[in-house]
Simulated assay, not measured.
Amino acid sequence: MQKMSFTELSLSQFYQVAKLRQDVFIIEQQSIYPDLDDMDGEAIHFLCWASVQTDVKLMAYARYRFCDLINQVKIERVVLAVEARSKGLGKQLMQEIITDIQTQHAGMPISLSSQLAAQAFYQGLGFVAEGDSYDDGGIEHITMWYRF
């Protein structure tokens, strides 16, 4: 697992991040939305590769951002390649991100926008759903919180 700022990502690494997000969110899930949202530059990125040699095959990815105006940390763009699903990689990725947030932003509430199909996964990690579900790019989502 690699933790990197945007400026630390090589062009090849960011290409693989964008491709994995496109392949899953836009093509597989048929959700047309602006994935490249101008937030990558302020985010911390977590990348999990198929082997110790990076840049070979990106298997899992997520980012988080500290949002000063609303005093919270947001986890976003959690995505796994098809062949990486149901193998515990998503749980490992999320646990590393939560641990990093606890270290870097102690006491800050963490939010994420979960697809309804993934809600139970996030609940298993300690997230709690809040509010009503809403449509985001043609897929129902719900806001979830992790509070220390």
Rank of each mutant, 00 (worst) to 15 (best):
Gln53Val: 14
Lys19Ser: 07
Thr54Lys: 13
Ser133Val: 01
Ile98Thr: 12
Leu58Glu: 06
Ile75Arg: 00
Ser133Asp: 13
Asp35His: 02
Glu130Met: 07
Ser133Arg: 01
Thr99Asn: 15
Ala118Pro: 11
Ser113Glu: 11
Asp68Arg: 07
Trp145Arg: 05
Tyr134Gln: 03
Gln72Lys: 11
Asn71Pro: 00
Ala118Trp: 03
Gln13Thr: 03
Ile32Arg: 07
Ile101Phe: 11
Asp135Pro: 00
His105Pro: 06
Phe127Gly: 09
Ser114Arg: 15
Ala120Cys: 05
Asp37Trp: 08
Gly124Asp: 12
Ile75Gly: 00
Ile101Pro: 09
Gln115Ile: 13
Leu20Gly: 09
Tyr146Val: 06
Thr143Glu: 13
Thr54Pro: 11
Ala120Met: 10
Arg147Asn: 12
Gln22Pro: 00
Gln115His: 12
Gln119Ile: 02
Val82Ile: 05
Glu140Ser: 14
Cys48Asn: 06
Thr103Leu: 12
Arg85Leu: 07
Leu69Arg: 00
Asp40Ser: 06
Asp100Ile: 08
Ile139Gln: 06
Gly137Asn: 08
Ala18Val: 12
Met144Pro: 02
Lys74Ile: 01
Phe25Cys: 07
Ile139Trp: 02
Pro109Gln: 14
Lys57Val: 12
His45Trp: 06
Ser111Asn: 13
Leu58Ala: 05
Asp40Gly: 09
Ile44Trp: 04
Val78Trp: 01
Asp68Leu: 04
Arg77Val: 04
Gly126Gln: 04
Arg85Pro: 03
Val52Phe: 02
Gly131Thr: 08
Gln123Lys: 13
Arg85Gly: 05
Ala60His: 02
Val73Thr: 08
Gln95Arg: 15
Ala62Thr: 07
Glu8Ser: 05
Leu69Asn: 05
Met4Arg: 14
Phe148Ser: 09
Ile26Cys: 10
Glu130Arg: 13
Ser10Pro: 08
Pro34Tyr: 09
Asp55Gln: 14
Tyr134Leu: 02
Glu28Cys: 08
Val79Leu: 03
Gly138Gln: 08
Gln72Gly: 00
Gly90Ser: 12
Trp49Val: 03
Ile32Glu: 06
Ser86Leu: 07
Leu36Ile: 15
Leu9Ile: 09
Asp135Glu: 11
Asp35Val: 13
Arg77Tyr: 02
Gly126Lys: 05
Ile32Thr: 09
Pro34Leu: 08
Tyr33Phe: 13
Leu89His: 07
Arg65Glu: 04
Gln115Cys: 14
Ala84Gly: 10
Tyr134Glu: 04
Gln104Phe: 05
Gln53Cys: 05
Gln72Ile: 00
Val17Lys: 10
Cys48Phe: 12
Ala118Arg: 08
Ser114Cys: 14
Ser133Trp: 01
Phe6Ala: 10
Met94Ile: 15
Asp38Thr: 05
Gln115Leu: 13
Ile142Lys: 01
Gln16Pro: 05
Asp35Cys: 05
Thr54Leu: 01
Ile75Tyr: 00
Ile110Asn: 14
Ile97Leu: 15
Arg77Asn: 02
Thr103Tyr: 09
Cys67Gly: 00
His105Glu: 13
Gly137Leu: 07
Gly138Ala: 07
Ile97Gly: 12
Ser133Cys: 08
Phe46Glu: 09
Ser31Pro: 03
Lys91Phe: 01
Leu11Cys: 09
Tyr122Glu: 06
Asp100Gln: 14
Leu47Val: 02
Ala50Asn: 10
Glu28Leu: 06
Glu76Ala: 08
Phe14Cys: 07
Val73Tyr: 03
Tyr134Trp: 03
Lys74Glu: 04
Pro109His: 12
Val17Gln: 06
Gln92Val: 14
Leu125Thr: 09
Ala50Tyr: 00
Gln22Arg: 10
Thr99Gly: 11
Gly124Tyr: 10
Ser113Val: 09
